[in-house]
Simulated assay, not measured.
Amino acid sequence: RRFVAMVETPTGCLFEDIQREDIHVEAAVGRGTFGVVFKAKWKGKDVAIKTIESENERNAFLVELRQLSRVNHPNIVKLYGSCDNPVCLVMEYAECGSLYNRKSYCVFRK
């Protein structure tokens, strides 16, 4: 059974079913709400890969997937898609790092 199929997404909110072999993981860059966050390349662009480490983190994963699949705004990290094996989110890479650890704001490029 497809993992992401358990999440209801609003009409018009599309994200891709991404294959693991299409992702080139470069390095671990931190920890998120759940699991580890990696910098990677997908379709020639820098992306962040958020993984889950245990079944206990599945609910947090589903909440984030549901929330990000509903929004499309330049100030919110874009969800490109998800991967089933391993279970992960493929998201826009925020070059300035986590806002949680930052004391100043990043300069956003257009």
Rank of each mutant, 00 (worst) to 15 (best):
37 V>N: 05
47 V>D: 01
8 E>Y: 03
60 A>Y: 12
75 N>Y: 10
43 K>R: 09
100 Y>L: 14
83 C>A: 06
53 E>G: 12
4 V>K: 01
49 I>A: 02
37 V>I: 15
99 L>P: 03
67 Q>W: 03
55 E>M: 06
79 L>E: 00
54 S>L: 10
4 V>N: 03
28 A>N: 07
35 G>N: 08
62 L>Q: 06
62 L>D: 01
15 F>V: 05
108 F>I: 14
69 S>N: 03
3 F>N: 14
3 F>R: 13
81 G>E: 04
58 R>Y: 14
76 I>C: 10
26 E>N: 00
25 V>P: 00
13 C>Y: 09
51 T>E: 03
18 I>L: 15
88 C>S: 04
63 V>F: 15
100 Y>D: 09
39 K>H: 07
91 M>W: 03
30 G>N: 14
104 S>N: 02
20 R>S: 10
47 V>P: 00
8 E>R: 01
47 V>L: 00
55 E>P: 02
100 Y>K: 06
96 C>D: 09
2 R>K: 12
62 L>I: 11
38 F>H: 06
34 F>I: 01
25 V>F: 13
64 E>T: 12
87 V>I: 15
61 F>W: 07
91 M>A: 08
80 Y>F: 15
23 I>Y: 00
81 G>A: 04
97 G>D: 15
10 P>F: 13
82 S>A: 15
107 V>A: 05
62 L>F: 14
39 K>A: 03
71 V>P: 02
95 E>I: 05
27 A>K: 14
76 I>A: 02
105 Y>T: 04
47 V>M: 02
87 V>S: 14
45 K>G: 07
37 V>E: 11
44 G>T: 08
21 E>Y: 12
59 N>I: 13
45 K>T: 13
96 C>K: 10
16 E>C: 10
32 G>I: 11
49 I>S: 03
49 I>M: 11
14 L>K: 07
102 R>K: 10
78 K>F: 06
40 A>K: 03
38 F>V: 01
74 P>A: 02
8 E>V: 07
9 T>A: 10
59 N>Q: 15
53 E>L: 13
67 Q>V: 12
67 Q>S: 09
34 F>Q: 01
101 N>S: 08
19 Q>V: 00
107 V>D: 02
66 R>K: 15
61 F>I: 06
26 E>L: 15
14 L>G: 08
6 M>R: 10
52 I>H: 01
80 Y>K: 05
78 K>T: 05
42 W>K: 01
38 F>T: 01
7 V>M: 05
70 R>M: 13
97 G>V: 13
73 H>T: 11
46 D>S: 13
27 A>T: 12
42 W>L: 05
100 Y>T: 10
102 R>S: 14
96 C>R: 10
88 C>W: 00
61 F>K: 06
49 I>R: 07
88 C>R: 00
104 S>R: 10
4 V>L: 08
88 C>H: 01
77 V>H: 01
73 H>E: 11
3 F>L: 11
19 Q>A: 06
8 E>Q: 04
56 N>Q: 14
13 C>K: 11
89 L>Y: 06
26 E>C: 04
93 Y>N: 05
70 R>L: 07
105 Y>P: 01
70 R>I: 09
64 E>A: 14
6 M>T: 11
52 I>G: 00
54 S>H: 09
92 E>G: 06
94 A>E: 07
99 L>W: 02
23 I>F: 05
13 C>H: 06
35 G>W: 05
